[in-house]
């Protein structure tokens, strides 16, 4: 009895002590968090101020006007709709194909017991972890050689499809890995009864497994969209025409071109960041679960 009371006492004491400590920790992390998002807030602030005002009075001056003029200017002067279209034309097919191919491999590996299943899974997962630097020269050469061989020089090099394919080839490793670990949580009995009922492999995939995979596919789609949207590297090295590049790759050139008018540039950067921010805030749950489903990405 008394031991129980004693224990409860010490528990209360511990909790009270902890409360004070927690308040201090919370305040500390809070201050740190404000410093953390300051760079983003500053960029946003910069984007709302007219260039003339800043130029005349300095970056720390109290603004005479705050408006969205820089955003309108950025959209028309930086050709942003064009670059957004390019991003769209790359991201949508790339995400779709990545999920499609990833789900095919994951389906076979997790539902049928072939002896090379683990090898296959290892191959895809390891492939996803290889550095881009290691594959870049031959891919570049292959694209150009293929273009020459079939008489259409820009079939893959300097084309959206070339960028789509390299994204798909790399990311399907990650998709396979995530989807196959998700599929392992789906009971085998479902598949067995489908097979007993005489379903073909194709029906088993499309009518039985695919609907069950929906939550995992949604999470993965959100994650892949942000990754492919944010990538600037492949479009930079596998394309030569600037007007075909996606928004993130184009930002570098725009930065050079509008280097003096950085209020305009801030608006451009904010617009480029907007889609991923919207996705993050609206589909945050899918985003986080996609990342933690595979628990990592190299």
């Amino acid at each position: 009895m008394s031991i129980d009371i004693e224990l409860q006492k010490s528990a209360t004491k511990y909790r009270n002590k902890q409360k004070v400590k927690d308040r201090f920790i919370s305040a500390l992390i809070g201050v740190f968090a404000i410093i953390w998002i300051f760079p983003i807030v500053w960029t946003f602030w910069t984007s709302l101020r007219p260039y003339k005002d800043v130029r005349a009075n300095g970056v720390f001056s109290i603004p005479k006007a705050l408006n969205l003029q820089n955003y309108f200017d950025a959209i028309s002067r930086m050709d942003l709709p064009l670059y957004f279209w390019n991003t769209f034309a790359i991201t949508v097919p790339a995400v779709f194909l990545t999920l499609f191919f990833g789900s095919l491999i994951a389906f076979v590996v997790s539902r049928y017991s072939f002896k090379w299943n683990v090898t296959l899974l290892l191959l895809f997962t390891a492939g996803n972890l290889l550095p881009a630097q290691l594959v870049f020269i031959p891919v570049f050469k292959m694209y150009i050689t293929l273009g020459k061989a079939i008489g259409i020089p820009r079939v893959l090099y300097d084309s959206h499809w070339g960028v789509v394919l390299i994204h798909v080839a790399f990311q399907m490793g990650f998709a396979t890995f995530v989807l196959s670990s998700y599929m392992k949580t789906i009971p085998k009995e479902i598949s067995e009864s489908a097979m007993v009922d005489g379903a073909t492999v194709f029906t088993h995939y499309s009518k039985v497994m695919l609907p069950l995979l929906r939550p995992a596919l949604a999470s993965l789609a959100v994650l892949m969209t942000t990754w492919i949207y944010n990538d600037f590297f492949w479009a930079l090295v596998l394309m030569s025409t600037d007007s075909k590049r996606p928004i993130t790759s184009a930002l570098g050139r725009l930065q050079g071109e509008f280097v003096t008018d950085y209020n305009l540039l801030a608006a451009g950067a904010a617009i480029a960041a907007l889609p991923t921010l919207i996705v993050f805030f609206l589909l945050r749950k899918q985003f986080v679960s996609g990342l933690t489903l595979g628990s990592t990405k190299g």
């Binding site: 992390i29 910069t46 993130t248 930065q255 921010l277 996705v279």
Partner: peptide, 22 residues
């Protein structure tokens, strides 16, 4: 706090470069 600390991860590095340049 979770949102604040995670926010930079969502941004493209191309945007991050511009932000820090400012």
């Amino acid at each position: 706090y979770e949102t604040a600390y995670y926010l930079p991860v969502v941004l493209s590095l191309a945007v991050t470069g511009i932000i820090w340049d400012f």
